[in-house]
Computed example of a mutant assay.
Amino acid sequence: MKVRASVIVQGRVQGVAFRHHTARTAQQLGVAGWVRNLPDGSVEACFEGEEKDVVAMVQWCRRGPELARVDELIEKLGEYTGEFTGFQVRG
């Protein structure tokens, strides 16, 4: 079953290659979507794909890369749209 999840990750998540590692992990899992920095210092991402892979991606975001410190993760589930063809790092 294909699903969609959006997350906002708060903590020390900018300046630690969070977006780069998120994109690499998503590509390894075959998850489509995007990740971007927000002006408040958090990171926002949207993932679509097989449920087990999207769940794994959200779990990865709870830890992040080695230099990150994740204080909070806000997750919102949505309907799978199929609008993404790959994974993109945005602004």
Rank of each mutant, 00 (worst) to 15 (best):
M1G: 15
K2L: 07
K2C: 03
K2P: 14
K2I: 06
V3P: 00
V3M: 14
V3Q: 02
V3G: 01
A5D: 14
S6F: 09
S6M: 13
S6A: 12
I8E: 14
V9H: 00
V9R: 00
V9L: 07
Q10M: 03
G11W: 03
V13P: 00
V13D: 05
Q14S: 02
G15C: 06
V16Q: 02
V16M: 01
V16P: 11
A17M: 08
A17D: 09
A17T: 00
R19M: 06
R19N: 00
H20G: 01
T22G: 00
T22Y: 03
T22N: 12
A23E: 13
A23Q: 07
R24V: 08
T25M: 09
T25Y: 05
A26P: 13
A26L: 03
A26K: 05
Q27P: 04
Q27G: 00
Q27T: 01
Q28S: 07
G30A: 15
G30E: 12
G30I: 06
G30Q: 14
V31H: 14
A32D: 14
A32W: 11
G33V: 09
V35T: 09
V35F: 07
V35G: 06
R36Q: 14
N37V: 04
N37A: 11
N37M: 12
L38K: 14
L38V: 03
P39M: 04
P39I: 01
P39L: 04
P39V: 02
P39G: 07
D40H: 10
D40C: 06
G41T: 03
G41M: 12
G41Y: 10
S42M: 07
S42A: 15
S42I: 12
S42H: 07
V43A: 08
E44R: 14
E44N: 13
C46K: 01
F47C: 10
E50H: 00
E50A: 15
E51P: 08
K52I: 09
D53Y: 10
D53E: 14
V54Q: 15
V54G: 08
V55I: 15
V55M: 03
M57S: 03
Q59T: 07
W60K: 08
R62C: 07
R62T: 08
R63S: 05
R63C: 03
R63E: 10
R63N: 11
G64Q: 10
G64F: 00
G64Y: 06
P65M: 01
L67Q: 15
A68E: 11
R69F: 04
R69E: 02
R69A: 08
V70R: 05
V70W: 09
D71V: 04
L73A: 07
L73F: 02
E75Q: 11
E75N: 09
L77D: 08
G78R: 13
E79M: 11
E79A: 10
E79H: 09
Y80E: 04
Y80R: 04
Y80G: 02
Y80N: 04
Y80M: 00
T81Y: 06
T81A: 02
G82M: 04
G82A: 05
E83Q: 13
E83Y: 02
E83K: 13
F84V: 09
F84T: 09
F84S: 05
T85V: 13
G86R: 14
G86L: 00
Q88Y: 13
Q88M: 12
Q88A: 01
V89P: 13
V89F: 01
R90I: 03
G91E: 14
